[in-house]
């Protein structure tokens, strides 16, 4: 079925439960604010057409037939950002799919009970300040997305390998220095982002992440910068090479490695036929390697030693 037909078909199927249609015209911020005030919902954040449907067993059945997760509700495949409104206003459940924002109006205690009952419902509990509890729940609920930060980690626990369904992982831990082998057993991983003050290196095992599309490593990152905090000079950053095995990441589309002591790029990068974005900025590379010129699919390349801010200062816009 064509996307347009599917979109229309969904609205037609839900039409018997339609209570109201709200249209907020472009640039009508007053109307947008008025609607937001009435409904107090994440659903209304821009101009658009909004459909309000009655909650009942039948309409719920349709929602279950039409999608298999909240992030399926995205245009043009489907009408977007499914939100459930309580009587009197406010969201019971909201989704803002483009922002990867999902939430429910439940207390900490209710959330804990729900997570016991519903395997696959993974809510951000205060108890997750304890990394062991966070990993326990992440493994139990087979999460496909995880952000780890603020745990003062010097190394990642090996049990990270148990997160077998993980597609996206971001780690922002300034004291993290070594990446465990278990990390490279996450075969479904599509996006890996690591922010740390310094990193020992990129292991050759990176080649095992065959589904990786996005790899981002940013040194000189601090998740708890104290007054006067200063990153160490990049010459002193341990990460000083990109392993040739990087060329085995056939799906890789974006590669970012910033603020390291890397001085040259491995020619194996040329094997990355899907690579479109290459940013090895603020490292110690003297000149752009010639082989990059042969990578016609690249849409963005930065190997400058300077930061974007420094480059902007060098090239001020003409008056």
């Amino acid at each position: 079925m064509a996307l347009r037909d599917r979109y229309t078909g969904v609205l037609e199927a839900l039409e018997p439960y339609l209570l109201k249609t709200i249209i907020i015209q472009n640039n009508n911020m007053d109307e947008l604010m008025r609607i937001r005030k009435i409904y107090n919902s994440h659903a209304f954040y821009s101009a658009g057409t909004y459909y309000l449907f009655r909650c009942c067993e039948e309409s719920g059945k349709l929602l279950k037939q039409m999608a298999s997760r909240l992030s399926d509700w995205i245009y043009p495949k489907l009408p977007e950002d499914l939100c459930f409104l309580k009587k009197g206003g406010g969201d019971y459940l909201y989704s803002v799919v483009h922002e990867h924002m999902y939430g429910m109006d439940v207390t900490e205690e209710e959330a804990g009970e729900l997570m016991e009952r519903v395997k696959g419902l993974f809510l951000e509990l205060k108890a997750h300040r304890d990394l062991d509890r966070l990993l326990d729940d992440a493994i139990k609920h087979q999460t496909d997305w995880l952000y780890i930060s603020g745990h003062r980690l010097t190394e990642l626990p090996e049990r990270i390998r148990e997160l077998t369904e993980l597609r996206e992982l971001e780690i922002f831990e300034q004291d993290l220095y070594r990446l465990p082998e278990g990390l490279f057993e996450l075969s479904k991983l599509e996006c890996l982002k690591i922010l740390s003050a310094d990193l020992e290196g990129i292991p050759a095992s990176i080649a095992r992440l065959k589904n990786l599309k996005v790899l981002s490593i940013q040194c000189a990152s601090s998740d708890r910068p104290a007054p006067g905090y200063q990153a160490k000079p990049r010459e002193e950053i341990s990460l000083n090479r990109i392993p040739p095995e990087i060329g085995e990441l056939e799906q890789l589309e974006q590669l970012t490695i910033q603020y390291t002591s890397i001085r040259e790029l491995p020619p194996e990068l040329e094997q990355l036929k899907n690579l479109q974005f290459l940013d090895i900025g603020m490292c110690l590379i003297e000149r752009k390697p010639e082989f990059l010129g042969g990578m016609k699919q690249l849409k963005y390349v930065n190997v400058s030693r300077k930061s974007l801010f420094e480059m902007a200062l060098d090239n001020p816009p003409e008056a």
């Binding site: 209304f44 449907f53 459930f84 519903v118 951000e124």
Partner: peptide, 29 residues
């Protein structure tokens, strides 16, 4: 309370049932 990620499959269905029973209406846009 935020979710780390959106529930999928059977978990999505259970969450929809919960939301239907705790809400007056739902919005799509």
């Amino acid at each position: 309370m935020r979710m780390y990620t959106d529930p999928r499959g059977g978990a999505y269905e259970q969450v929809i049932d919960l939301a239907i029973s705790n809400s007056e209406c739902f919005v799509l846009g």
